[in-house]
Simulated assay, not measured.
Amino acid sequence: MYDLTGFQRDLLTVTAGIEEPHGLAIKDELEDYYEKEIHHGRLYPNLDTLVEKGLVEKGEKDRRTNVYTVTKRGQREIEARRKWENQYIDL
């Protein structure tokens, strides 16, 4: 996960946390968090990077909609990141 950008880590986290994570649903969640518009030219290339790295799988819901699923490797990376963060943050 160390080689991901902050935006890519956020994408991975959102993808893991929502039901039926498709592009527009992920986009909506990130726009709420960032409080600004996320352009398709930023969203989809970064999702493709997560797919290429084996952290997310891309499938088709229908001819127009892709669905993204976090892989077991992606889940392990999220858990490892959270464990690492918890070393430094006392909640």
Rank of each mutant, 00 (worst) to 15 (best):
I78C: 09
T71S: 02
T65V: 15
I38F: 06
R64K: 15
K36E: 01
Y88P: 02
V70M: 03
D28C: 06
K27D: 11
T13K: 11
I78A: 09
E52Q: 14
E31L: 06
I26H: 00
L43G: 09
I26N: 01
D48Q: 13
E20C: 01
Q87I: 08
I78G: 03
V67T: 15
G74F: 10
Q75K: 15
V14Q: 06
A80S: 13
E29C: 08
N66L: 08
L24S: 14
L47R: 00
K61H: 08
K83C: 01
G41A: 02
Q8E: 15
Y68Q: 03
Q8T: 08
K58M: 14
D10W: 04
D32Y: 07
D10I: 01
M1G: 15
Y2P: 04
R76Q: 15
V14D: 03
E57Q: 14
L47I: 06
G74Q: 10
Y34L: 13
R82Y: 06
R42V: 09
R63P: 01
Q8Y: 07
D32L: 09
Q87D: 12
L50P: 01
N86L: 05
E85C: 01
K36I: 05
I18L: 01
H40C: 00
G59P: 04
L50S: 04
G74R: 07
G17A: 08
L11S: 12
R73G: 07
L55C: 06
Y2N: 11
N46F: 00
L91N: 14
V67K: 14
E57S: 13
E19V: 06
A16T: 05
Y33E: 15
Q8V: 08
D90S: 13
L24E: 14
